[in-house]
Design a binder for these strands. Sequence first.
DNA 1: ATTCTAAATAATTTCGAGATTTTGCTATAT
DNA 2: ATATAGCAAAATCTCGAAATTATTTAGAAT
Lengths: 216, 216
Amino acid sequence: MHTKIDIYSELRKRLTSNGFDHGAKLRAEVLRDEFKCSASAVREALFRLATVGLVNFQEQRGFRVPQRSGQKLIELTHMRVLLESEGAAMSIRNGGIAWEARLTAAHHKLSHIEKRIHASEDSSGLIDLWFSSEHEFHQTLISACGSETLKQTHSVIYAQFRQQLMKADRKFNFISENIRQHADILDAALAADEILTRERISDHLARHLTGKTLED
Amino acid sequence: MHTKIDIYSELRKRLTSNGFDHGAKLRAEVLRDEFKCSASAVREALFRLATVGLVNFQEQRGFRVPQRSGQKLIELTHMRVLLESEGAAMSIRNGGIAWEARLTAAHHKLSHIEKRIHASEDSSGLIDLWFSSEHEFHQTLISACGSETLKQTHSVIYAQFRQQLMKADRKFNFISENIRQHADILDAALAADEILTRERISDHLARHLTGKTLED
DNA sequence: ATTCTAAATAATTTCGAGATTTTGCTATAT
DNA sequence: ATATAGCAAAATCTCGAAATTATTTAGAAT
């Protein structure tokens, strides 16, 4: 038996990691079987997901997974740059040793996984691990900013960003560039150089501003 | 008879304009009478409001209006500065004549109301008008930024900001300072001076960063 | 062949009753 | 007096069936 929160998190996970196709219809009456609960419970979860942008809802027409869109990815990337730059700058000012330690740890973990992906032929088993480690690194970057509001907003935007890329990011052609960029961000942050950190976050995300990342 | 969207918007309006006390309990079984509908319909609306931060929800403990909090107001103000500065700068670059015209119009309307409030003894009849005009001016400021995502995020943050202030802003002690600040923002925006516009938006909102605006 | 209409089918939304959980009250013991 | 346990009342949550609305299909007319 699944609890209400399980339904929400399970759906959220699928919506951000290739569990549904873009544009797919999400019928409560169908999903209820998987979760062994009523349609209303699923419906409620879908509603909540709709207000954080991971599901589209239309009156009398049900729920759908948002379509892929180059414009949307550009906007989400822009928001990420805005929020992460600001959050990282604030963390540099307020974070102290504890934050630096957490950031170093998060980078160490991410870096290890990225190197394994870079080395191996078949990286399919490492995808989920990379997604969560990449998320953790970027989350840690802003974790000492002192604003719950900024962190919550970032988490909403990040999930939508991930959803747009759930198909595209699976080939890891970008991985060697990424390894360097993550290290560069870490260095700038540890050097407490706000301007440089902002620049490097911006550079890191720049490849999503070309409108090319969604092409298959 | 009320439709579902009416329930949502009516509750949203009350939650941002002194319709409920801070911390008040929101019982679906009670509110159903006002809307002449089932508790489930109200419950659904409350859920949706919870995910945009206008209502707090706790499992098995129902819904509440968020408490006032100096820290939260500071964070929301900071987010407004971040989003409005960026949105205004982008609008300056992309907006063109049409945007300038809309901004001038919005300012004209707001300015007219602010002067009436400044002059009159009893401004209570003008409160709602001022709220909506002030909102419209700030919304217009970022309206040509080209990013739906930024505009939607701003609208969520703005609503929460307004909710924090729904009691406090009713005395209008700040109004004469505000008249000048809005005019200054308009001037800088029309002069296409991005840096100055950013500064003036920041100055305009600065009084909410002191933690004093919530005191009665 | 195409367009329009109407019936049939399918999907979505509303609703209130029953099940579950929390909260408030009272009695008892320390 | 304070704390605890048990009981009663109230609030919340779940669910499936009924009502509403959308979509598809089939038939008729241009």
